[in-house]
């Protein structure tokens, strides 16, 4: 516990000259190409981009589930060579073990590390307390709401005291109100633990509200289109989402993403949708017309 609440920020992620392709019958397919990103210790960074742009691929490579075709991924100077408890991960599908109670789920990482039962029980209870879940420690995940499941997912990923927290569209399946609450909980935990966060989302508001910096990716093959610092002061309030500063950032990001989404769908729309709509392109790109 004491190491978890340490005040020294840690977790410097560095992704250099990264590309990832996989084989198909038509030859290699580029999923991500020529990408550099970094997350400074204690920084909160989001990746946004059109669907299928490879943002999850990039995150999975940082987690160690995918090997880069070229390039290198390091955390605090050490090369990533496979999944490890140093990089906690939160999945969109919650991915709690249904056969374990809430507390056993949280204990899992500590158990893998060989911590004695009584000690890890105590640690798990403390963590669940921080997330307001102590009353549910003996419940099986099935009985919990989506928001609670994901809170358990976050607490479980943090229990081993990772250097880095990776989140893959963690709130995508939640309703709007729950999502707002979850964003605040995540911000609180992040500020308390001072670890680096790499957060993948397609929700622009969420990315701006949470992050210090946002990377915007291009359509497939994905690469970094833009890097946008978010200078909004902390602690951030929900009301800030109406501020002109926030809206300006939002407008900027929105147009970046729209460009890429249209590029991604352009072919299909030209082929099918546009005929019915009677829009003449006259050699302009679709983005210009719309």
């Amino acid at each position: 516990m004491s190491e978890m609440l340490a005040s020294e920020p840690k977790g410097h992620i560095e992704v250099k000259n990264f590309s990832l392709s996989y084989d198909s019958i038509e030859g290699p397919v580029q999923a991500v190409t020529d990408t550099q990103i970094h997350v400074k210790p204690g920084e909160f960074v989001s990746i946004v981009g059109p669907s299928g742009c490879g943002k999850s691929t990039l995150l999975n490579a940082v987690a160690g589930f995918l090997k880069p075709t070229t390039g290198i991924v390091t955390v605090d100077g050490e090369r990533v060579n496979g999944p490890s408890a140093e990089r906690g991960m939160v999945f969109q599908q919650y991915s709690l073990f249904p056969w374990k109670t809430v507390r056993e789920n949280v204990e899992f990482g500590l158990k893998m590390r060989g911590m004695p039962r009584s000690q890890r029980e105590r640690a798990a209870r403390t963590l669940l307390g921080l997330a307001g879940l102590e009353a549910f420690e003996k419940h099986y995940p099935e009985k919990l709401s989506g928001g609670m499941k994901q809170r358990v997912g976050i607490v479980r990923a943090l229990a081993t005291g990772p250097k880095v927290l990776l989140l893959d569209e963690p709130f995508g399946a939640l309703d709007a109100q729950t999502r707002v609450i979850m964003q605040q909980i995540l911000t609180n935990m992040w500020q308390r633990l001072k670890i680096s966060v790499l957060f993948v989302t397609h929700d622009i508001d969420e990315a701006i509200f949470l992050s210090d910096r946002v990377y915007c990716m291009t359509a497939r093959p994905g690469s970094i289109k833009a890097e946008i610092p978010i200078p909004l002061e902390r602690p951030r309030q929900q009301s800030m989402m109406m501020s002109s500063e926030f809206l300006a950032l939002r407008r900027g990001l929105m147009s970046l993403i729209r460009e890429e989404s249209l590029k991604a769908m352009g072919g299909e729309i030209n082929d099918m949708g546009m005929q019915g709509l009677n829009i003449e392109l006259h050699g302009h790109s679709l983005a210009d017309v719309i």
Binding site: A63, G64, F65, G82, P83, S84, A85, R87, G88, M89, F91, Q93, S95, L96, F97, W99, F108, G109, M112, R113, R156, A157, T160
Partner: peptide, 29 residues
């Protein structure tokens, strides 16, 4: 067995034997 659960176990530090015991076996029960 849901591969996401296997990945979740891996990034919590579980090795092959632990994944078999803690994920594959209970998931198949």
């Amino acid at each position: 067995v849901d591969p996401v659960l296997v990945r979740a176990a891996q990034c919590l530090g579980a090795r092959e034997r632990a994944i078999f015991r803690e994920v594959y076996f209970p998931a198949s029960l």
